[in-house]
């Protein structure tokens, strides 16, 4: 009960103190960037196949807006407290370390998912994919899974190397998720993106895909991808919590 209350307290506090012009601006940028791209494409009169619109929405919203939101919110989670010298005030509370990390993950999910939802709500009717309601629903679920996967991965960097968390998170995203994730080999199955992408294929049944593109997906049933993702969340976040609970964070102004 204390854990739930603590997580709720951290989440509400973080949401409360994040109401700044800067953060709101970042949120708006993330929400309206896909809108800008989709509107621009429509304005050029381009008429790609409906499957391409679906994949574009997936790429822009699930992969860019959601992931970038998590990157900006989660990777500096501990560093921001160390930098503002507020860490010790939190760490001396019962279960303080873990409720802070969980609360910050929940906050990051709320912020990035809200921008993704806004982007999806505006972009879907403009893009007019086939079966827009289904595309909307599937992309909401995939965005959430992607957000959770990225969030838990970034939490490891946040606690293991707080001072360099954003750098490592950036390299991880670029090299592992975006590069390795597209290598047609077993290694790509260790990325969040691969499983989310395959779920998109399974749930939307994109027709007319060039045969070469099929190299980047596999035929495993959806439950296998979901199990893999859940295992990924549990392992990464579990690792982050273990590191956090065992680590000494030393302030620079020891006296």
């Amino acid at each position: 009960m204390n854990l739930v209350r603590g997580v709720a307290a951290v989440t509400l506090f973080e949401l409360r103190r994040s109401r700044t012009w800067w953060r709101s601006g970042v949120w708006a940028l993330l929400a309206f960037f896909p809108v800008f791209i989709v509107v621009s494409l429509r304005a050029t009169g381009a008429d790609p196949p409906k499957e391409a619109w679906t994949f574009l929405l997936y790429a822009l919203i699930t992969e860019v807006t959601t992931s970038l939101g998590l990157f900006l919110w989660m990777s500096p989670a501990i560093q921001s407290e160390l930098e503002s010298k507020t860490w010790v005030y939190l760490a001396v509370r019962p279960y303080g370390r873990r409720v802070v990390l969980i609360g910050k993950l929940v906050t990051a999910l709320i912020w990035s998912m809200s921008s993704s939802l806004v982007a999806l709500t505006i972009c879907t009717p403009i893009a007019r994919p086939e079966n827009p309601a289904r595309v909307f629903g599937v992309l909401v679920v995939l965005s959430f899974l992607s957000a959770l996967g990225r969030g838990t991965a970034y939490s490891v960097f946040a606690v293991a190397m707080p001072q360099r968390a954003m750098v490592f998170a950036f390299v991880y995203t670029l090299v592992f998720e975006y590069l390795v994730g597209w290598i047609p080999a077993v290694i790509n199955q260790f990325t969040v993106q691969f499983h989310v992408r395959c779920l998109l294929m399974n749930w939307i049944r994109l027709e007319g895909m060039p045969s070469g593109v099929r190299l980047f997906f596999n035929d495993a049933p959806s439950w296998q991808h979901l199990v893999s993702l859940v295992a990924y969340f549990v392992l990464t976040f579990g690792l982050a919590l273990i590191i956090l609970e065992s680590r000494e964070f030393v302030s620079s102004d020891e006296g």
């Binding site: 503002s84 010790v88 005030y89 302030s251």
Partner: peptide, 21 residues
């Protein structure tokens, strides 16, 4: 020690920088 944390109050030397709270 979470039980102990309930019995101890801490006022560190570090400044608090939650500016908009």
């Amino acid at each position: 020690n979470h039980d102990l944390f309930r019995r101890v109050g801490v006022c560190p030397a570090q400044e608090v920088l939650y500016a908009n709270v």
